[in-house]
Amino acid sequence: MVVTKTGATETDWHAGIFRALKAADIRQIPYVPDAGHTDLILRANADPVMKAYPLTTEEEGIAAASGAWLGGERAVLLMQSSGVGNCINMLSLIAACRFPFVALVTMRGEWAEFNPWQVPMGRATQGVLELMGVSVRRISDTARAETEIAAALDDAFLGEQPVAVLFSQSLIGRKTWVK
């Protein structure tokens, strides 16, 4: 069980997401870390066949996921909403080659946000993804997490389309700024 900084337990719904990733045989997890992805990154690191690796910037993960597919592996990119803006031009690679693509994006700047610098990109996240041709879904209810992720993985790897799943900031909870 993982206890977040806010004290909430994340075990169950993250376990469900990880189950969906395993069921879809995801092998590569490039990521720029976010507190909301901590549990998934721990699980991926502990998995014997998954390769989870940190990126210096999110667009690296789009290129890596494309390379993975060229080599016959499925990848899922983890990032925070602030990283979506870094990805814009690299998403051309996904569109031009019709690569399957899945990004799991934890939202900032939309719910109980302490940091105004997170707000502009948080507000633009969905629009930016849609402008670049990525199908956007949102998880606001932990009970739906596994089902939604499984559907996104099917849409990407069976339906050959790019998909981003946004995790509402309210799922992750308030960030504790002063300890």
């Binding site: 092998r27 590569q28 490039p30 390769k51 667009e59 690296e60 993960g61 789009i62 290129a63 890596a64 996921a65 494309s66 390379g67 993975a68 597919w69 060229l70 080599g71 016959g72 592996e73 990848a75 031009n89 690299m90 051309s92 690679l93 031009a96």
Partner: peptide
């Protein structure tokens, strides 16, 4: 040979994702 026509800055990472997927090549 996978020729990129765009995705500037991404060639090495396409290579990395590919290399991880094909460790014997």
């Amino acid at each position: 040979t996978f020729f990129l026509w765009g995705a500037m800055g991404g060639a090495a990472m396409v290579g990395m994702g590919l290399a991880l997927a094909q460790p014997d090549e």
